[in-house]
Design a binder for these strands. Sequence first.
DNA 1: CTGCTGACGGTAT
DNA 2: AATACCGCCAGCA
Length: 123
Amino acid sequence: MTPVGRGFRVRVYTVVRAIPEGRVAGYGDVAALAGAAGAARQVGYAMAALRDDPAAPVPWHRVIRSTGAIAWGGEPGRPLLQRALLEAEGVAFAGDRVDMARHRWRPDRQDLEALLDALEAAP
DNA sequence: CTGCTGACGGTAT
DNA sequence: AATACCGCCAGCA
């Protein structure tokens, strides 16, 4: 299923779909993996664009701030939903932040290979 | 083509 | 620990 959006955003969504359940990644991490290091903000905007396509199979809740905090933007209440979705996957919080040491996703060689494949397959 | 609009991140106070 | 500042750029009307 091709996610909504074009160009850069498609790559972003592809990367996000590669984040395993129970793990999280920072917006900047996703940007770097999508081949746009430093474009963290753009990734955030790409996530915001998902609201136009609720059916898009993108686990957006696994993308959080590099600090472990959940981003405030989007529709009212969205951050709470995000936290709930993460906790449902077993992600632990310390206060209002995710325990990054424990849950931050660091793709291994296999993950990267699969990701590169996916990026190639998604125009 | 121009302008507007946004789920960020690192560094310096 | 909490703010404040800047640099970031792709879509769409």
